[in-house]
Amino acid sequence: MTGIVIEGAARSFGSVRAVDGVDLTVGDGEFFTLLGPSGCGKTTLLRMIAGFCELDAGEIRFGARRIHQLPAHTRDIGMVFQNYAVFPNLTVAGNVAYGLKARKVAGAELAKRVDEALALVQLAGYGERWPHQLSGGQLQRVAIARALVIRPQVLLFDEPLSNLDARLRVSMRAEIRELQKSLGITAIYVTHDQEEAMSVSDRIALMQSGKLEQVGAPADIYRNPASRFAAEFMGTTNLLSVGALRPEALRLAADAPAGWPRLAGVLVRAEMLGPITRLDVRLSDGTLVRAALLDDPGRSMIAGDTVTFAYDPARLTDLP
């Protein structure tokens, strides 16, 4: 088990600085996520760690060992790909055994570890199947088993859930998190989905234009975004003259303590989403404020109504 240190990593493609001087320390056994919009450099940074992308400058260490000049196949990494990358010419067991055979594991030991890995991802008994007989979710489990079975120093996930349907994504991400924690392997996870990032990560690095925008625990980044970009990428944000405010920090004035500041305006749109209702309210100065309220059967509002919100001033964030 290993921590990862990245110092001054940089890479340009033509005139584009894909990764522009990134410094990062990932703790031993930590689940660390690189989050950001497409083209922010998160995948390039992950591929640098994996050894598929050369650094123009900087270095990467696993523990005390400098690895950024090692060939990819000697870095001892387990990687899970967006499109699964399950070898179609090998059975499920053949896929899982692939890395072990490269490490000269053979015989009963090989069979035992393949079975264990398949059981770990709930695919016990699937060893003799061929990849084309499996569903997308099962293929991704094979890919995870294949990465885990070699007991790598570091696990890398490159948007592993984006090819799965929404329901499966939610259950798989919880499984990935549990597996990683039970094995204690340091993991770096790349995604563009902030909800996914918040659900699985110990810490998140939010990236933009090849640079780190903010690094911190999920709740920390959500509640205390360091920039307007961070605030808006992590969720809907109301940018008011006094600061930034999340939609759920607003309450109807009637339900709020008397001392909280008020905001009054005209309801433009109300969206009932089940557990919550979203309200878009235009203030008298023209600003559109978005609020999210828990569903309340006793409440009824239609567009054109005048609405007054109140908010806890402690939940205002100052953005530079």
């Binding site: 060939p71 990819a72 196949h73 001892d76 387990g78 990358a85 890919a143 294949r146 070699i150």
Partner: peptide, 10 residues
């Protein structure tokens, strides 16, 4: 890349 990351040379 999957094969290489699992320890096989190019």
């Amino acid at each position: 890349e999957a094969s290489i990351s699992l320890g096989r040379s190019p």
